[in-house]
Design a protein around this nucleic acid. Structure first.
Lengths: 101, 101
DNA sequence: ATTAACTATCGTAAATTTACGATGGATTTT
DNA sequence: AAAATCCATCGTAAATTTACGATAGTTAAT
């Protein structure tokens, strides 16, 4: 049973858009980002109180958002302050805008 | 080892946006939609020729896009003509617009 | 009535995602 | 130095996704 495990190569924009969309593809992550839009910034602990999820789960979602560059973490010992990464946010925004235009 | 398998309830808009984003979260589906934007409509077979994927795989991606309402299929025997569902497309568009505003 | 063309669906395996508790590392406070 | 706080990471189980080939269903053509 042969199976093709290689990935097709798409255009850069297509890949980038899909990557951002995938990161947005979970309601918890949308809710986290909406929270960050309102508050501009927040700590992991704040989110753990807002969502009925384990701390490790929230941390994992934050990691994914960080990996695609939508947010960034700043060390404010002993906490970590998360903010939206404006640069990449703008990039994502225009990718979606172009797509839906 | 207890685990919470229930889903958190989010606001309607949050759930809707996440659902659309999830559907857009794969480069093949982005590429399919871009193709549909250009061509306005196409048949499954057209896409099978464009993408180096099995027919069943393309069909599966189309099904997901149909399930979230981004496209619709019209019977044009013996083919099926797929188009963008303008109504839901507009809904998705404004959800993303509002989100990134 | 057969056959051909087109596409959905089934069955499946591998990979990924999502959730949790437990652990560990870094800094602050005591 | 010890304890407490905050958070990432590890290990892991269940669920979901992604891909394929094979099969089945539907309509058109022969």
């Amino acid at each position: 049973m042969k199976r093709n495990l290689e990935h097709i190569e798409y255009k850069k924009d297509t890949e980038a858009l899909a990557k951002f969309a995938k990161a947005l593809g979970h309601p918890t992550r949308i809710a986290i980002l909406k929270h960050l839009e309102k508050q501009s910034c927040c700590f992991t602990g704040d989110l753990v109180e807002v969502f009925p999820l384990a701390q490790s789960t929230v941390s994992q979602h934050l990691k994914e958002l960080k990996n695609v560059g939508l947010i960034q973490g700043e060390l404010k010992p002993p906490k970590i302050k998360y903010c939206i990464n404006q640069e990449n946010w703008t990039i994502a925004k225009s990718l979606f805008q172009d797509f839906f235009s």
